[in-house]
Amino acid sequence: MAGLSYTSINQTRMATGEVYCQTLIELAKENPRIVALTADLGKSSKIGEFMKQFPERFYQFGIAEQNMMGAAAGMAKAGLIPFTSSFAIFTACRALDQVHTDICYQNVNVKMIASHAGTSFGQAGTTHHSTEDIAIMRSLANLTVIVPADGIETANAVEAAVEHEGPVYIRINRGYDQQVYETMDYGYEIGRAVTLHEGSDVTIIACGSAVFQALQAARELDAVYQIKARVLDMHTIKPLDKAAVLKAVKDTRRIITAEDHTVIGGLGGAVAEVIAESGMATAFRRLGLQDKFSPIGLHEDLMAHHGIDTNGIVNSVRELMQLDFEEDLDWEDEV
């Protein structure tokens, strides 16, 4: 561990991309194998600062994501730990063939930092939204998929990615994230969900920018409606923390997922698979983009539009509370 200690103070001063870059700079001081790559998005992704610190370890590819992903695979084969910085849409869609064959199939040690994810670059237009990338990347064997809730969790994820041998996809937002964590010291671990709020009536499983909204929703549900909602920060989409999902099913019998992404195949899809295969009847709902592309707007407005802001989650939870679920507590006779 690099002994990093980012706190909420740092985060209020830095966009999530800046936290990523500063984290990588700190890690690179101790680990000479780390190199940074970008495809003309050094400024937007904030990784440009890395170039000032380590000019000889920074590679500008120009507007050529496919070449960057392929070359990253080759560099990893030569013993380096390449961090690619581009927008999520260009990482998961533009360069998917290279990500598939050069990085994931060959299982090489490339870390892809995919910024401006979900609708966080809302005003740039639908060409720059990335609302399918979790589903795409989750389906690739060998790949670890992480969607941090805020800047501090991004720092943890980047640090964990360096220690993890193999390809990693980290999906972060443009700009400043709403703050979920106060310090880095909460026991972050790839593949282990964080319980942010305890509850016995319903569990909200969220990732990325929806985590803050889920937490706000849980507080409101408790204060206004006396509904006790558990909130899980499911930062790792793959490998998914199945135990946390199944425990939530057993304990609360109602599950709702929230993500800044299509409801098809992402966090909601992953959780649905676990629940369906468990054989346990559950009241269940997926929040996110309902098989639609997003309109253009500010991130917070788009989250409201898609029902993944605090109000949207509160309303969906209240609806879900009206749904029936099986009262039989003995699951053993059903599987």
Binding site: M68, A71, K77, L80, D97
Partner: peptide
């Protein structure tokens, strides 16, 4: 065989990455 190929064009980048990596080393 040092690199998986078949999807055309990709070997040009992966070979380039390996050349760069060797130079850095």
């Amino acid at each position: 065989v040092d690199m998986t190929t078949g999807s055309l064009g990709q070997g040009s980048s992966t070979a380039t990455g390996m050349a760069l990596g060797r130079k850095l080393a």
